[in-house]
Nucleic acid binder design. Structure first.
Lengths: 112, 112
DNA sequence: GCTTTATATAACATATTTTTTATATAACTG
DNA sequence: CAGTTATATAAAAAATATGTTATATAAAGC
């Protein structure tokens, strides 16, 4: 299941930063690595994770491997999240949210 | 950063299944555990992960702890994903996708 | 009050992830 | 061709995640 890989890839802040950078356009591995206090191999691995998850694609340009966002990147993720969105919307329509706020035996935090 | 916890929580299939179940309404720990070939403590831990990530909330009902989807569950996630959505839409508008498909030096898979 | 039910926590084993250093490869440069 | 540049891969250490069994807690039922 690709959802595992996709969500897992997004769970890492470095990888999200890489995606945010790619949102502005293509970039090579070195360009992507520069902002991070991390070695190049580490970034290479993050890119592999993103590629395997279907979030980015890479092309070959001489000795460089420019990366971009994969066109269908978040399609599957979005589809799954829609299920939750709809459920949350339904709950809201039923005013479950309001009721929950009123009956204060709901805990927003943890009790220990 | 809560995004880490949220995406990380969603990366596990058991936890996504739990959320899918909760999308149909409140459920107790035992009810949630039943479909899985997993011990109750394992499910308890998954629920804690989901709660910490802000994806579910729990109330106290006697000895039971019924769970629901947290109202704002995917708000932060959605906000972040919007950045990507917009970038992808921009790329599409510029026909970057089409161009990429034409210049076949783009690899959809991996080369080894 | 004692037993059962619902859930949590602890201790621990195993698996996975993340990062590092060292090295390989392959394409440019002069 | 020799050296440099861009990137990948391997090996290994450290951190984290996931599941198990055993046990604790607290409310419910008799």
């Amino acid at each position: 299941m690709k959802l595992d890989a996709a969500f897992s890839a997004l769970a890492d802040p470095t990888r999200r930063a890489i995606l945010a950078r790619l949102a502005q356009g293509e970039a090579t591995v070195m360009e992507l690595a520069k902002p991070f206090e991390m070695t190049q191999p580490a970034v290479s691995r993050h890119l592999k994770v993103l590629e395997t998850a279907g979030l980015i694609i890479r092309r070959v340009d001489g000795t460089k491997r420019p990366c971009r966002l994969a066109p269908g990147a978040i399609a599957e993720i979005d589809q799954w999240l829609n299920m939750l969105r709809e459920a949350l919307a339904r709950n809201y329509d039923r005013l479950d949210g309001v009721l929950a706020a009123m009956q204060h035996d709901w805990e927003g935090k943890e009790r220990s």
